[in-house]
Amino acid sequence: MAVKSKSVASKIVLTALVLVAIFPIFWVFLNSFKQLVDIVSTTPKFIFTPTLDNYIYVLGRDNVQHGLFNSIIIAGLSVLIGAVLGIPAAYAVARYPNRFSDDIQFFVLSLRFLPPVAVAIPLIAIWLDLGLYDTRTALVITYTLLTMSTIIWLAIPAFSRVPREIEEAAIVDGYGPYAVFFKVALPVAAKSLIGAVIFSFILVWNEFLIALMLTTSDAKTLPIIASEFTLLGRNVPWGILNASVIVLSLPPLIFVGVMSGFINSALKKKD
């Protein structure tokens, strides 16, 4: 009996933990389909007549569409450049170790130590002087630092996990070093590499501080637009705000399954 009541108790705790983890997000999701009166009620409302008004308003606004477009272009391009340059670099570090390998790895990691504000403030001045302030180009270039270093850092172990024998067999078969990379290592490591690329996409999609400081109107990304909804008019438009949070969060959340698989394979038992 003691064991049974213990397992019931642990089930309750477990359920409570799951609720703490996702209920706040679920609540925002529910509220995004409510009229304002149903949100600002004296008791929480679970049953209400759903409305799409909030989404229609959010998605219909020019600045949201523009921000969405900016975010897609900026995140897409910076991830693409980061992957094209970063993945081969990671392969070279993983498979052709030299006396600088450790230093290279540390340099790439140390880029993450830089406080974003320390990068953003001088970049305000630099992009202003170059006439590129508040442009998508400036953000793509700035974010490439982020995507490239992240992709290199995560792709090195991905390539190290490729069994050496496969690559050596390919060399025996007459493959040159480039063919080994493109035809063997790249396809074998593909799954982990996609995880690394998606991770860097999420980082850039979610990035706020640098975008806030490097844009004023033309190049604003979606997180900046979403953060500005609180400033609309005199009454806080809670439903609209909830809907904009959901719209902003959907792209990273689509990849939850992929990221979970990526974590699993990175922390798998080493046989």
């Binding site: 983890a21 997000i25 979610n206 706020f208 902003l248």
Partner: peptide, 18 residues
């Protein structure tokens, strides 16, 4: 393991609003 990584994947701006 899937549910518990949802919060960290949210944009910080979204997490803050939530």
């Amino acid at each position: 393991t899937v549910l518990f990584i949802i919060p960290v994947m949210l944009p910080r701006v979204s997490a803050a609003f939530v």
